[in-house]
């Protein structure tokens, strides 16, 4: 036996699966070949060592979980069985309805296909228009919901909630007078500068509303915070509101006005005229 063959047999040797004949052949070779002897000895040392690794025990929850799963599965399959028997009876009845001759079968299937196509066409025409009205209805409802949320948030005591209210109102597609009024009121009366600034931004989205433009011009005179003043002037210039010229001129007359705001207002005047 050659060294190569010994290597091939080593796995069987370790597992104790060599027959008497092969075993004596291997032993004969090992007696003559120190290299193979050494290799096989170290292999079987490791093989034996592996035997000392203790078998570990899983925790008790494994068994509990297994039996829970088995129980759940049994219940599930019982239900499935009921379903199958129902399916079988159905297929039996369909089988009885089916005509025997192939020609009739083809005719029947053609009729069914035609009926299916026709029905589907009719349904799709009807459902398309129905879907359209449904979508518009839904859109309206969502808008209403946003309106209610926005108005109620704008009336809250906490500034962050009022800010949220402003951002909700900005999401409304078609704001009613109520939203516009509430936003303008927020712009004029809210004690918090950030909320007022957010209101300016939200109103910018609805500037084509007639009340908004007038409200913005009117609000300019009442504002005290330079930030809000700047933001209002920017907005009015951006939407090219000529009626704002008068309000701007009046603003510049104010001696207590912040110099930066004054500068912006003067620039705005030249841009508008």
């Amino acid at each position: 036996m050659k060294c190569e063959q010994i290597r091939e047999k080593s796995a069987d040797y370790l597992a104790g699966e060599l027959d008497e004949k092969s075993l004596s052949e291997v032993r004969a070779h090992l007696a003559d070949c120190p290299a193979c002897r050494e290799e096989l000895e170290s292999l079987s040392a490791i093989w034996t060592k592996l035997g000392v690794l203790p078998k570990e025990q899983p925790s008790g929850s494994l068994r509990i979980r297994f039996y829970e799963m088995l129980e759940a599965y049994k219940k599930g399959t019982e239900k499935d069985r009921d379903k199958i028997s129902l399916g079988q009876t159905l297929s039996y009845w369909f089988g009885r309805l089916m005509p025997r001759r192939p020609a009739y079968q083809i005719a029947l299937s053609l009729i069914l296909i035609a009926a299916g196509l026709g029905g589907g066409f009719l349904l799709s025409v009807r459902s398309r228009s129905a879907a359209r009205t449904e979508v518009t209805g839904l859109r309206g409802e969502v808008d209403d919901m946003r309106r209610i949320v926005a108005v109620s948030l704008l009336k809250q005591a906490s500034p962050s909630e009022r800010l949220m209210g402003v951002s909700w109102s900005a999401r409304i597609d078609r704001p009613g007078d109520e939203i516009i009024q509430t936003l303008l009121e927020t712009l004029n009366r809210d004690p918090n500068v950030n909320v007022r600034l957010a209101a300016v931004d939200a109103l910018y989205l609805f500037y084509d509303h007639p009340e908004v433009k007038a409200g913005l011009i009117h609000s300019l005179a009442g504002q005290t915070s330079p930030l809000v003043q700047l933001s209002l002037i920017n907005l009015l210039v951006e939407i090219r509101e000529r009626r704002a010229v008068e309000a701007l001129e009046r603003l510049i007359q104010d001696e207590k006005l912040n110099p930066k705001v004054k500068k912006r207002a003067e620039l705005g005047l030249t841009q508008l005229s």
Binding site: E8, S10, A11, D12, A45, I46, W47
Partner: peptide, 17 residues
């Protein structure tokens, strides 16, 4: 191939060990 994998695996395991 299983037998030769066993052979190589034990040899390698011994080396690492």
């Amino acid at each position: 191939s299983i037998k030769s994998t066993i052979h190589r695996a034990i040899k390698e395991l011994g080396k690492i060990y």
